[in-house]
Write a protein that binds this DNA or RNA. Sequence first.
DNA 1: CGGTCGTTTGAAGTGGTTCAAGCCTTGTGG
DNA 2: CCACAAGGCTTGAACCACTTCAAACGACCG
Lengths: 237, 237
Amino acid sequence: MLALNTRPARPMARAVAGLLRAADLEPWAVEGLLDLGVERHPPGSLIEPSAERPSEAPQMKWLLDGWLCEARVLPNGVRQIFSFAVPGDVIEAPSSPRFRSVRAVTAVECVDVADLLARAANPDTFLCAVLRSLEQATERRYDHIARLAQRSAQVRLASLLVELHERLCGAGLVRSDHLQGDEFALPLRHEELADALGLSPVHVTRCLKSLREQGLLTMKFRRVSGFDRAGLEKLCV
Amino acid sequence: MLALNTRPARPMARAVAGLLRAADLEPWAVEGLLDLGVERHPPGSLIEPSAERPSEAPQMKWLLDGWLCEARVLPNGVRQIFSFAVPGDVIEAPSSPRFRSVRAVTAVECVDVADLLARAANPDTFLCAVLRSLEQATERRYDHIARLAQRSAQVRLASLLVELHERLCGAGLVRSDHLQGDEFALPLRHEELADALGLSPVHVTRCLKSLREQGLLTMKFRRVSGFDRAGLEKLCV
DNA sequence: CGGTCGTTTGAAGTGGTTCAAGCCTTGTGG
DNA sequence: CCACAAGGCTTGAACCACTTCAAACGACCG
């Protein structure tokens, strides 16, 4: 379920670069990271507080690689996804998964924030980045409420994709192309998008088709290409 | 726009009792409150950080009497209400009202939390209550996302009313009646409920009618009566 | 008593759901 | 290398929840 590894594989190094950019950290801060134990979680697994460290405070993880989603399963069996986490984000591992649980969407690599702080050469810098990340997540929760309550299906989808594009840009995971449109990995099925947006998967399909026909993006094989950010933002006004 | 007053009127005393119960505070803690300046805001006014105390930290207010709503006006002119605050709640006065603003729904009385902490005989107790209140508000934001995304109009409305009933109970603002159903003041127009729930006001009317016909509640003259909590909760499953 | 704001009701339109079938990828075994 | 199965994507048709528009009604306030 969970393996520790002191020698991270290549994908992490790539994400770390983005992470550092996102957190405004200096490149030399990487050294502190590479010494740390990296937790690996397979797709679909729950991210829970480590049992070994039974602390009172909420445990936070810094996501190095892969995607997470924060969700709740309602009494009627429907899953509501509250948010997605992308490399560079900090998430709180919920102590009681009754109301909110965090699950790996893809294979995931993360480190414990407490470890990071304890071992970092400059804990203050790290802490600031962590707090900023949590604050932005809170901000996005408001955005999501407005999105769900007031927007049509197509605009909900477009604005979520714009948000993810923005965040992936910050993590250095977008290949920019001003002529053909940007391109990035989006390891979500229509069902995940539907569960986040309160739509049926088939209607997500239809909305994506419509966006494609408007030349705003193409989503295929877990990748988005031809992403026209300006056009999508105009749609979202 | 904002008046200070050292001698609060009667309505406050009532709310304070509920507030204390909600916060598990001892009755003698009231004394500290009565010495404090109480801010009064007319209906419709914005609650902003006091200009006189230009602090970096977010300013928090403890609501003694009246209702607030936390909202954003979207570019297309639609208002999204994120949450309501009832007596006993703590709210953060947003520093930049660009993304989130807090507005008085009714006439409002509140005190500054920093003042409260500075002057309180037992700041620890107060601080715990404040933190608990903020934590519960965060929790409710998740509930609201799930409500908006996954529920039918009628269930959205019912579950919001159940939430408000629960909170008003905590503040001692519900008159319990197990035979006829509970009764409490609900100073919201259909439009406010609609803006919170992502519905049109006319459809709120229809949903209320349906709930009334099911014998679950009656909403009239800014009051809810015949509130059948158990029945409503069964509806929300 | 008349004006205004909020609520109620009806009728028509639309956006999203549901169900069901076909298709396209990807992975697996012969 | 192909055959086949499984899972996800796509499309169509019918249905339903909610919206919009419009008009009437009711309470409250001068």
